[in-house]
Nucleic acid binder design. Structure first.
Lengths: 346, 346
DNA sequence: TTTGGCACTCAACACAAAGGAGTGCTAAAG
DNA sequence: CTTTAGCACTCCTTTGTGTTGAGTGCCAAA
């Protein structure tokens, strides 16, 4: 809207937001003029505040309270005022320490990431488990549970194990299965699942292949086994930190948020949005597009393995979050996880 | 302590507890005499109440409030007063319906069980995932992640997939692995993991076997792969129901409980206690031995597969729970899960 | 043994007054 | 023209004070 915000206004807006983040109390002109090395009288501060409110960056709960930031205020703060410091080495160590455990498998590592995000930030940690299609084929195994039921156990390059129950139309003998397994493990290793599927389609298009009974079955089975899960999985840790936030002391609204977490799908959608984004992304309040999370903000970043983005991770908390400290935490964690996934099991 | 409780006292105690369960309000003599077809005047009821309080079954928050049950009161109620009705067929259908989905794997089924327990009872559902040692060996597969790292993927009879990263001392070639896999899959299928381990120990004791290089490696690897996890896993669903309970409206205590849930280990311990117990078990308040859960009660039951008990499931809520409706829900769910695990994938 | 009556207790609720943090406006000072 | 001190005003919050009413314990009568 209005592109004019004097440097002084910006400085005051920043001070108000930081004060509010620290105290969770509406910020008044007097306290502000006193604490934040602002060389102005409370009266002048008031003038600026009124102006900022007019422009929509601030709001006042009632006449005789101070001001609180609006979403627009937070957005401006995050976009232009905020300068994120790097973590100091002590903080980096604190995060890194959690992954020193011997031979963590990917699943454990992701859970640990969520836990660490939560405990370091004191908000709720979120980690999206990589979708099947972006993982890299390493090994597949079929176990016959019954004549028509095959359990496909699929190991990705990074040691993530996914399994899926496949119902088949025609019976397969153990011998058939063994051949199929061998074929897939020899031809597909190292390809991404997307590539594997493309390859299968390509081979099937090759008419000759269709005459090969084994190949046809292989395609049928592996297509079924590698079909994409519609919904990803997400690891949520530290929900209890939400209970500490004064803005959610209202049980009614607290419950709505916890329920939203339990359903997971909304969070999955929000994390998905960060998949194609470079660096850290901040989603504030109604930008989530979900009314349940109107008072929540997310800070997310994508992590990647050897071959591109795998998933996203982040932190969710109230709008009033200390962005300057959380952003580098999320950023560093994403980088760290990416590095670990890259070097591990090479 | 005192074994004498007249029939009249018992009847009044029962009425008080049921009234309190329904309303969450201290129960007074007048309301009680009115509603619960008790043919006594409020004054007489008061006399009995005073007596029950003396004996420790009731407590009064303050002089001019009614009475609330103590733990001892609940315990007596559950042990001798309570008569649980069977579920009617509508309720059974409501539970059963959740499992009609095509080809659920065991893990999905257990999650569904937890979810259903929660949604039907309106409290928090708990399901303990079977410990490795009680599951039945169906198939094992080793995937080499690096020369010294082997991923052991292990499929149980019921389709549960567990995997474990094993670090080995001496390198194994793919050919070695294949032989080991074949050996294990041919000799061990159908045995419980406990039996598999016993078998391995027995074979190793047989001195001749030690000269067989392959066998020795097999034992080393499979011992490592099948080593018991120290801590089981638990599926918790419906934490948000806790936020509805008026007794936990105090955020401080609410947070302590949610944190306890997040750590999981306490709940695992509590569910473990029900492993060797037949039928439904009720743990009330301080009987949990955990101060964090002093105001919570658990209702648990063990479920089993073809070959004995696999794990436990149940519901956790405030002491003030409608035991008469929850107990049959837990009971029926345990029976149902056991039946499904028995018939499925045979 | 049961019950009605009665004095007593005490949380909960409502209402009023005091207190205080903060605002907007105006007029004087820089 | 900008900044600031002063001041009246707003309105939430806190505190205090009755008042209400549900519930109790006890006693004496049925």
């Amino acid at each position: 809207m209005t592109e004019t915000l004097t440097e002084r206004s910006q400085k005051i807006l920043e001070a108000i937001i930081e004060e509010y983040i620290a105290t969770a109390q509406p910020v008044g002109s007097k306290a502000l003029a006193r604490n934040h090395d602002i060389k102005l009288s409370p009266a002048s501060v008031r003038n600026v505040m009124a102006e900022l409110e007019e422009l929509g960056y601030l709001a006042s709960p009632h006449t005789s309270a101070g001001r609180i930031p609006t979403e627009k205020g937070y957005r401006f703060y995050v976009d232009t005022l905020l300068q994120v410091n790097d973590l100091n080495s002590r903080q980096k160590d604190q995060i890194e320490l959690q992954y020193q455990q011997h031979g963590l498998q990917m699943a454990d590592m992701l859970r640990e990431a969520s836990r660490t995000l939560s405990s370091v930030s004191h908000y709720t940690g979120l980690v999206m488990v990589p979708r099947l299609k972006v993982t890299i084929f390493r090994h597949i195994e079929f176990v016959r549970l019954s004549p028509r039921q095959i359990l496909a156990v699929f190991v990705t390059q990074s040691g993530l194990v996914q399994n899926k129950l496949v119902e088949i139309d025609e019976e397969l003998t153990p011998r058939d299965l063994e051949q199929i397994t061998n074929y897939l493990n020899h031809t597909m290793t190292g390809l991404s699942i997307q590539e594997v599927r493309a390859r299968i389609v390509a081979e099937m298009a090759n008419e000759k292949a269709l005459y090969d009974h084994l190949l046809r079955r292989t395609f049928a089975l592996s297509t079924a086994a590698l079909v994409d899960e519609t919904t990803g999985d997400i690891i949520i840790e530290g929900t209890s930190y939400f209970l500490e936030q004064p803005e959610f002391s209202n049980l009614k609204c607290m419950k709505r948020i916890v329920q939203t977490f339990e359903q997971k799908n909304i969070l999955i959608d929000l994390l998905d949005r960060g998949l194609d984004t470079e660096g850290v992304q901040v989603i504030i309040g109604s930008e989530t597009k979900y009314s349940e999370l109107a008072d929540c903000s997310l800070i997310t970043a994508a992590y990647s393995g050897k071959r591109g983005t795998l998933g996203t991770l982040g932190v969710i908390g109230p709008n009033r979050m200390p962005y300057s400290t959380i952003i580098p935490i999320v950023d560093y964690t994403a980088t760290l996880i990416s590095r670990l996934l890259d070097t591990d099991n090479d």
